[in-house]
Amino acid sequence: MRWTGTWTALRDRLDAAGYVASDTLAMALHLALSLGRPLLLEGAAGVGKTELAKVLAGLLDTRLIRLQCYEGLDASAAIYEWNYQRQLLAIRAGEGADADAEERIFSEKYLLTRPLLEAIRQPEPPVLLIDEIDRADEAFEAYLLEVLSDFQITIPELGTVAATARPHVILTANGARDLSDALRRRCLYAYVDYPDRRTELAILARRGPALSSALAGQIVGFVQDLRREDLEKVPGVAEMLDFAAALAGLGVNDLTDDPATLHATMVTLLKTEADQAQVTREVVERLAGRAA
């Protein structure tokens, strides 16, 4: 489905689908959809970059095809691969009469499509999420550029596959490596920051468990203060939601009620040993006192 509305309509639709987007982000997504350009989302881990792609797929009522990048990702994992076992079997089974064996085993039937090829062969434009592009090597990034500009893939044995529908491409990055200028130029860019207090409250109301407004305010205040501490791994929105769910599950009504329980729930927010050691019970109490 193509997007034809205005950017405010897109923001409201995202909102209704449970994703509270800032104006900047909604506009960037709207432009990416209406200009047909890839959108590069950059920001710390856990601010909802991947989630945006998922919500968008739901909103456009289309498939989400996800390519998770990692170091050493290569064409056979990202684009296509031949089904070797099947090819072997076919060659052995067809022994004798195999004048056209080569043609036969390098046909569609023996092709395993991987995310990129799959995305351009859909009848309807899907949402293609290229997650953590900065984890992939430079060489893959260069190849990706080619795919993103032409939307066609060449398979030597089979020929060129042109896109039946241009996918909506969303790339995410969180600074594991600097991306090439060429890739940045090809994409529209949006920096996704930690949400401000008002936005985070809205997210909690949308995605979190049912909480009293006082407790919700405390939780958001607590997490926002915690982000200002000198941490190795700053808690994101997902961590905040886990934290809220943990508190709801434990039946906590006020953060200042039970410091021991509150300190125990820090496992949902602090994900490294050093951070856990640094945020002692006293620090937790101080933050809770300030949030209350």
Binding site: T24, M27, A28, E42, G43, G175, R184, Y189
Partner: peptide, 12 residues
């Protein structure tokens, strides 16, 4: 301003 930002900006 909202519309120009995603086009002009390339990094944080």
């Amino acid at each position: 301003r909202l519309a120009l930002r995603p086009v002009c900006v390339a990094d944080a």
